[in-house]
Simulated assay, not measured.
Amino acid sequence: MRSEEETVRQRFARLVADAVQQAGRFEGRGGQVLLAQELGMSPSSVGRMLRGETLPDPRHFETIAKTLDLNVGDLLVEAGIVSRESLATPSQTRSTGVGSRSITLEEAANALGIHTEVGREMFTAAVERLQRTERATEADDGGGAAAHA
């Protein structure tokens, strides 16, 4: 585990150091101090980061990427801090992003604060009607959702 952390730190340092060199404006005397000012970090923290001794606080990742004209997601993936899959949007993963299991109408009513018998009956009827409409729309070959609206 310890060597994996070091690998991530070293890889992050290499990626950032390469971007610093590409930027050109942080080279030479005072470059690290200027970089630290732009990142909102102390010069010693920037030095430790560039030597691969530490990773910066995660709140600095976006600022580092923006300052060095990097994509923050690419930086974090290439450094091995996060996986590409963890950055995927729900539409890219075919996940709803809402949860891993469906909930019952009763659970939904409870979550929405619908507690009276009449309110629950109306809620259930409305949802069931919407479900029937959706099924009919999916079964309709030519009209699509607009035909049923």
Score class of each variant (00 low, 15 high):
Glu62Gln: 11
Ala13Ile: 01
Gln32Gly: 08
Ala36Gln: 06
Thr63Ala: 11
Phe12Asn: 00
Phe61Met: 06
Asn71Lys: 10
Arg132Ile: 13
Gly28Met: 05
Val82Pro: 03
Met122Cys: 11
Phe123His: 02
Arg120Ala: 05
Met122Trp: 13
Leu76Thr: 04
Arg9Val: 02
Val16Arg: 02
Ala108Lys: 00
Glu53Gly: 07
Ala23Phe: 05
Arg51Pro: 00
Phe61Pro: 00
Glu107Lys: 06
Ala136Lys: 14
Val46Ser: 02
Glu138Met: 10
Glu6Asp: 13
Glu106Gly: 07
Glu27Ala: 14
His148Ala: 10
Leu39Glu: 01
Gly47Gln: 11
Ile103Glu: 10
Arg48Cys: 07
Arg94Gln: 14
Glu138Thr: 09
Phe61Val: 00
Glu106Met: 04
Glu53Arg: 07
Arg14Gly: 05
Ala125Thr: 10
Arg2Ser: 10
Pro58Arg: 12
Glu85Phe: 07
His115Val: 12
Glu5Tyr: 09
Thr137Pro: 00
Glu6Leu: 14
Ala111Glu: 14
Gly30His: 03
Gly97Met: 04
Leu75Ile: 02
Arg129Met: 12
Leu34Tyr: 07
Thr89Ala: 15
Ser100Tyr: 05
Gln131Lys: 15
Val16Ala: 05
Ser86Val: 08
Ile64Arg: 01
Leu75Val: 04
Met49Lys: 06
Arg11Gly: 01
Asp18Tyr: 06
Thr96Cys: 09
Gln131Pro: 01
Phe61Ile: 01
Lys66Phe: 11
Leu39Asp: 01
Thr89Lys: 15
Val46Tyr: 01
Ala36Gly: 06
Glu106Ile: 04
Arg25Ala: 07
Ile81Gln: 05
Ser102Asn: 12
Arg132Ser: 14
Arg48Glu: 14
Thr7Ala: 14
Glu38Asp: 11
Ala139Trp: 01
Ala79Met: 02
Glu53Tyr: 09
Asp140Lys: 07
Val72Pro: 01
Arg11Tyr: 03
Asn71Arg: 13
Arg59Thr: 15
Thr104Asp: 08
His115Tyr: 15
Ala149Thr: 10
Val8Trp: 07
Arg9Glu: 05
Leu35Ser: 03
Val8Asn: 03
Leu75Gly: 00
Gly47Pro: 03
Val72Tyr: 04
Val72Cys: 06
Thr96Met: 09
Asp140Glu: 04
Arg51Cys: 02
Thr104Ile: 02
Arg120Asp: 01
Arg25Glu: 11
Thr137Leu: 09
Thr63Gly: 01
Arg51Leu: 11
Leu112Ile: 02
Glu78Ser: 08
Gly40Ala: 06
Leu130Phe: 12
Arg14Val: 11
Gly31Leu: 07
Pro43Cys: 09
Val77Pro: 00
Leu35Arg: 06
Glu106Asp: 14
Ser83His: 07
Arg94Asp: 15
Ala23Cys: 07
Leu50Pro: 04
Pro90Ser: 06
Ile64Trp: 06
Arg51Asn: 10
Ser44Ala: 14
Ala88Leu: 14
Ala146Thr: 12
Arg29Leu: 12
Glu78Cys: 02
Thr93Gln: 11
Val98Thr: 10
Ser102Gln: 13
Gly142Ala: 15
Gln21His: 12
Val46Glu: 03
Met1Ile: 06
